[in-house]
């Protein structure tokens, strides 16, 4: 794997995870009445910005490699998002959730090693 491809994969993961965390924060606010737009809009827009960064990085990655080869690296994102959700959003993780993550990671490792 080239250095450019590896850098793009790392950067795309960072963009994706921070985008998801910001979007969850934004959408949680929409359950309140009235919706606190002043707090919602900056979170929503920065989430969109992160996801746009992810989109163009992902486009560059796809131009260089087979989808079934690079897609497994996206499989790291459930683990990263779960850690982010536990740390920054204080979501409670159950044992079953951790078992599920372990299985997904093992599957991803197998897919990317082949």
């Amino acid at each position: 794997m080239s250095t450019v491809l590896l850098l793009a994969l790392i950067a795309s993961q960072l963009c994706l995870v921070s985008g998801e965390l910001l979007m969850k924060r934004a959408m949680d606010l929409t359950n309140a009445t009235p919706i606190p737009w002043r707090r919602f809009i900056p979170r929503f827009l920065s989430a969109i910005a992160c996801m746009s960064g992810w989109f163009f990085l992902w486009g560059g990655i796809l131009q260089r490699a087979d989808l079934s080869f690079v897609y497994p690296f996206e499989g790291l994102s459930p683990i990263l998002v779960m850690l982010g959700a536990a740390i920054f959003l204080k979501e409670k993780l159950t044992l079953r959730t951790w078992i599920g993550i372990a299985l997904i990671s093992a599957g991803v490792a197998l897919v990317s090693a082949s």
Binding site: D28, Y71, G75, G84, V108
Partner: peptide
């Protein structure tokens, strides 16, 4: 709209069904 109700780690991990579907 899913995110309005569902915890992020549950929703996102179910979304990773596409890790299998895409290949």
């Amino acid at each position: 709209n899913v995110l309005r109700q569902m915890p992020l780690h549950i929703a996102f991990s179910m979304m990773s069904a596409d890790q299998a579907l895409v290949p």
